[in-house]
Design a protein around this nucleic acid. Structure first.
Length: 540
RNA sequence: GGCCCGUUCGUCUAGCUGGCCCAGGACGCUAGGUUUUCAUCCUAGAAAUCAGGGGUUCGAAUCCCCUACGGGCUACCA
């Protein structure tokens, strides 16, 4: 079992920010002078990427771009059992949609190809063998069932079983058997794994760019499997070997990897690569909005907002999870939103283009605590980006919806409508509800609007206004407004009373942009037709 | 359970080398203004005893310690 707790070397180092800054800056001096900045995003194709993963990719991308480095997409598919068809394509498409570009990777190739670990299968074994030769790893023959039994046994004693220095002698491995036995087992084709031989009491320091120094005594670690019986490495080995071989300078990954970082440091050391070890930066997790636990793929749509960038259909269950793209978010907005979840520029700027993010980004300003996604603020961001879009762009997006409604509309008309309505929506998808009356005359009248704003005199006033509109010489919005306003003022009518009633008559409800713009756009004939219909059909 | 990481308004956060912070910004919320409706926009406001407790200090959100709480990890998963 474990040595007692007095042996645990837990030096919680007082790592002030200024030290952190110095260390951070040092990491560049070395790298900029001698090596390139090279970072990677290394997802496993076990399903769709959620926004937390997208954010990790984004931070890597921003970091690389800022420093003129390389950004690599490596697929970590060493677990065949969890492989999900379509996941890799999904990951690539998602990141492309976000505007995150790779300089190397599965989909674009590069000097360190292949970038899929399953295709690099044959290069890992030699490193596992090297570790065995140097006495830093060993063969283990325990079956899953035996290990499971061990765990159960320990569980019942309220202890945790760990394959570690204290008990590896009692297990079936090359340390507890004679060489002849081992040789015999291997030659007879018995399944085995290769485990790291964790040293007894060695201090391992993980220098994290975000968290400072994390110091752990190796006795806290266990003899993790490095090479599985299926002939593939585990994440731990593959990740270290590939990062080394691909000359990765900074490993920027999720905080869930922090506990295994000491193991990785040990691996670099045992492989003789400690001097070329990358810098680590463990970014905080994205949490569920209810505050319990990290965001996970299983959360799907249960949270009231998408967790995936793109819609995803599970190939097995056919369950569909919504995506930001399909929900009407602009990729620029999504990128802006997630960039600010865990990072901030230190200024009051909140709206950032990708280029601005690249300029402003630094790992130094990445926070330490997890953050929750705020759907309300996300809507606001999307609205901001919607306002930035040209009327033409919005019209193009809107035209798809309009077409689906079976309506023929001219491009110019859609551009004008988009212009008039865009500031009152968060998503293009809301445009129809805000503007359908441009295309279809109201058949019914909003009850509440009629109740509140259609008074006894309204019919009379609207009828009079109709005559004024019929007589209008210029039907552009501005002159029309002058004409009608003059009429209302001359008659000493209430502006609100007339206009509200007129709006109900023409729009069918109390919504929409400037009424004169509406009238001008739908034209005199249509306007008159609507007013007549309203006068005939509105009953208080 | 063990180990590791974290903890400032409801949410995202500013705050780093201690005093300019009885804590600033943004979203949301409330009220008012502009307006022909809604929205935009403008103004104002409520909202954090800086997780709690001890220290250090003339002075602490900021440094130290403890506790609590939250999270992560604890697979032949990544």
């Amino acid at each position: 079992m474990h040595s007692n707790s007095s042996h645990y070397l837990r030096l919680s180092l007082n790592f002030s920010l200024s030290q952190r800054k110095i260390q951070y800056l040092c990491s560049f001096r070395i790298l900029i002078m001698e090596n390139r900045i090279r970072v990677r995003f290394a997802p496993s194709p076990t399903g769709p990427l959620h926004i937390g993963g997208v954010r990790t990719a984004l931070y890597n991308y921003l970091f690389a771009q800022k420093l003129g480095g390389d950004f690599i997409l490596r697929i970590e598919d060493t677990d065949q059992a969890r492989f999900v068809p379509g996941a890799e394509e999904y990951i690539i498409e998602s990141l492309a949609w976000c505007g995150i570009k790779f300089s190397e990777g599965v989909h674009v190739g590069g000097p360190y190809a292949p970038y899929r670990q399953s295709e690099r299968k044959n290069i890992y074994r030699q490193y596992a063998d090297q570790l065995i030769e140097n006495g830093h790893a060993y063969y283990a023959f325990d079956t899953s069932e035996e290990l499971e039994a061990k765990r159960k046994e320990y569980d019942s004693k309220k202890q945790t079983f760990q394959y570690c220095p204290a008990n590896r002698d009692t297990m079936k491995n090359s340390l507890s058997m004679t060489d002849a036995e081992v040789k015999q087992k291997i030659e007879s084709g018995e399944h085995y794994v290769i485990r790291i031989k964790i040293p007894d009491h060695t201090t391992v320091i993980v220098n994290d760019l975000i968290r400072g120094k994390v110091i752990v005594d190796s006795s806290m670690l266990d003899d993790k499997v490095l090479f599985k019986s299926d002939g593939l490495p585990t994440y731990h080995l593959a990740n270290v070997v590939d990062d080394y071989l691909m000359k990765i300078s900074h490993v920027i990954r999720g905080e869930e990897w922090l506990p295994s970082a000491p193991l990785h440091v040990l691996l670099y050391r045992f492989l003789g690569w400690e001097n070329e070890m990358p810098f680590f930066a463990h970014v905080p997790l994205l949490l569920k909005p209810d505050g319990n636990g990290k965001l996970s793929k299983r959360d799907g749509d249960k949270l009231g907002f998408p967790v995936f960038p793109l819609r995803w259909t599970d190939p097995k269950t056919k369950d569909v999870s919504s995506g930001y793209r399909e929900s009407g978010y602009f990729p620029e907005a999504m990128v802006n939103i997630i960039a600010l979840l865990g990072w901030n520029p230190g200024t009051e700027q909140e709206l950032f283009s990708m280029e601005e993010l690249i300029q402003a980004f630094s790992l130094e300003r990445v926070g330490k605590s997890g953050s929750k996604f705020d759907p309300e603020k996300a809507k606001w961001f999307n609205h901001q980006y919607l306002l930035k879009k040209s009327d033409e762009e919005i019209a193009n997006l809107f035209s798809v919806i309009v077409k689906e409604k079976g309506i023929q509309a001219g491009h110019d008309q859609l551009v004008k409508i988009s212009h008039l309505a865009k500031e009152r929506i968060h998503f293009v998808s809301e445009l129809w509800a805000q503007t359908s009356f441009f295309f279809e005359a109201p058949k019914t009248f909003d009850e509440k609007a009629v109740k509140d704003k259609w008074k006894e005199t309204s019919s009379q006033l609207v009828a009079e206004a109709k005559d004024v509109i019929i007589g209008a010489a210029d039907f552009a919005a501005a002159p029309l407004k002058t004409t009608v306003s003059n009429f209302i003022q001359e008659k000493k009518y209430s502006m609100g009373l007339v206009m509200n009633a007129l709006r109900i008559a023409i729009v069918g409800a109390s919504l929409g942009p400037d009424l004169f713009e509406i009238i001008s756009l739908i034209g005199k004939e249509e306007t008159i037709r609507r007013i007549d219909f309203a006068l005939a059909n509105i009953r208080k």
